[in-house]
Simulated scan of single mutants.
Amino acid sequence: MVYRKNGGSTVTAKLGYLRSGNTNYKAPQSMPAGQEFNALWSGLANPCYPTNGLLYSGGTTYQTPAAIPSRC
């Protein structure tokens, strides 16, 4: 998962994912504007299951639409 912060001030946020009702987050990190941030998870069971990207910052969770890898 890759997120790009295009503008605004630096925020502290956690990147994560949602699948089958379960969430998992990486540690919080500082995110200044104009940079990309990666979140990679390995060993997920059934990689073809729909997965939503999550970004948590300031008490709000932002969610991407569900994605399924093209190899599925």
Rank of each mutant, 00 (worst) to 15 (best):
T61K: 05
P28D: 03
P47V: 14
Y3A: 06
Y49F: 10
T23C: 05
S9T: 00
Y25E: 06
A45L: 13
G59M: 14
N6Y: 05
W41F: 15
Q35W: 02
V2L: 12
T64W: 11
C48S: 08
T12F: 12
Y3H: 05
G7P: 02
N6S: 15
L40F: 11
G34M: 10
P69S: 09
M31N: 11
E36Y: 11
M31K: 05
S57Q: 15
A66W: 10
A45M: 09
L15A: 10
T60M: 03
A67W: 12
A67P: 00
Y25F: 15
R71C: 03
Q29Y: 04
Y62A: 02
P69E: 02
G34R: 12
G21D: 12
P47G: 10
A66P: 04
W41H: 12
G8R: 02
C72D: 09
Q29I: 13
F37D: 06
G8E: 02
P28V: 05
E36C: 10
T64P: 07
L18S: 14
A13Y: 04
C48K: 08
N52W: 08
C48Q: 06
L55W: 13
G34V: 10
T23Q: 15
C72Y: 06
V11E: 09
T64A: 13
P69F: 13
A27N: 10
T10W: 14
P32W: 04
G7K: 03
G53F: 00
T64C: 08
N24E: 12
S70N: 07
G16Y: 07
L55E: 00
G34W: 09
Y56I: 04
L15D: 11
G53P: 03
I68F: 07
P32Y: 02
G34K: 12
P50H: 07
L15H: 05
Q29W: 03
K14I: 00
N22R: 14
P47M: 09
T60Y: 05
G21K: 05
L44V: 11
G7Y: 04
L44W: 09
S70T: 15
Y56A: 06
A45K: 14
A67G: 13
S30H: 06
G8Q: 03
Y25P: 01
K26V: 07
T10M: 02
K14P: 03
